[in-house]
Each structure stands twice: as C-alpha cells, then as structure tokens.
C-alpha cells in the first residue's frame, strides 16, 4: 500500500454529494438562487476546512443511527478537497450569473455541478479529482498526490 494514502470515509463523501444534488435540484425547481448560494457557501466552508461540507449531517444523524454505514478506503483526501472547492467556484459563478442576469448560464452552471456530483455519486468518478491528478502530472506546484495504485485518476479506489 502507498504509505502516503490515508483513510477516507467515502460514505461521508457520498452523503455530501447526495445532499448537494438534492438541494440544487430544489433550487432549480423553486427558482431559488439563494439556495444554490447556500450550497456554494457550505461547499466553500467544507473546502476550507478540508471536510465534506455536509459532513455534520452524516456524522451527527445518518451514521449514529446506522442509516449509512462507513465505507473507509485508502485514498488521498486532497483531490476530494480540491474537487469540492472547484465545484464551489463553479457554483458561485452560477449564482453570480443568476443574480446579475444571464439566468440560462447560471442554471447551466448549477446543472453542471449537479451532474458532476451525480457522476461521482452513481458512477464513482470524481471529475475534480481527475483534474487534480492531471495538474499533478503537469507538475503544477501544490498538486503533489498521485492516484492510488491500480486506480484510474478520479475513479474511486477499489481497495
């Protein structure tokens, strides 16, 4: 096993993605840009604290009641932090577009974040993580982690 890998609870990540998808869907249907802004804010705080933004929902409610079981894998947490931050930036851009006028662009960006979160939740592919590993291959400073052994960049590790 790669010694630099850490234990990452993928259940916490999946709960985070599921809540993001659900809230963004509601924000679109209800035409509530403020809700998209709230999700962006939570994702920003999550990226800054290096935790899934909606992790308290998992640790405080779902996990203690046994509704969601932990799924701890050997993985790099940094790409997931980057992916959440990247998603937050795109979502903030969408919110700005919604507030300033081009609603189609704004909701398009909201749907982009929703779609990528769904791809991660249902397909196990983290696009933001793939971007992180791509930047690592380009030797961009700060992007020091490589994909876990045997894992395609961005794909959920199999171990």
């Amino acid at each position: 096993m790669d010694a630099s890998l850490q234990k990452v609870d993928h259940s916490a990540l999946r709960v985070n993605q599921a809540v993001i998808i659900a809230l963004l869907l509601v924000s679109f249907i209800a035409n509530a840009a403020w809700l998209a802004a709230l999700v962006a804010a939570v994702m920003t705080v999550g990226a800054l604290t290096r935790q899934p933004g909606f992790r308290p929902l998992y640790t405080g409610l779902l996990k203690p009641r046994g509704w969601v079981k932990p799924d701890v894998l050997n993985d790099n947490p940094e790409p997931h932090v980057f992916a959440q931050g990247f998603g937050a930036v795109v979502l903030w851009a969408g919110v700005v577009a919604l507030v300033t006028g081009p609603a189609a662009l704004g909701w398009g960006l909201v749907w982009l974040v929703t779609g990528l979160a769904a791809l991660n939740l249902f397909g196990g592919f983290c696009a933001g993580c793939a971007v992180y590993y791509w930047l690592n291959r380009l030797n961009v400073p700060g992007f020091v982690k490589t994909p876990p052994p045997g894992a395609f960049p961005g794909m959920r590790p199999r171990v």
Binding site: S11, K69, P70, D71, V72, L73, N74, R158, V159
Partner: peptide, 10 residues
C-alpha cells in the same frame, strides 16, 4: 469485491 468494501460485507 475487495477486503475493505463495507457495502460488500453488509
């Protein structure tokens, strides 16, 4: 499956 896969076990 894999040894560390929780949903596989449960």
């Amino acid at each position: 499956t894999s040894p560390d896969c929780a949903p596989c076990r449960t």
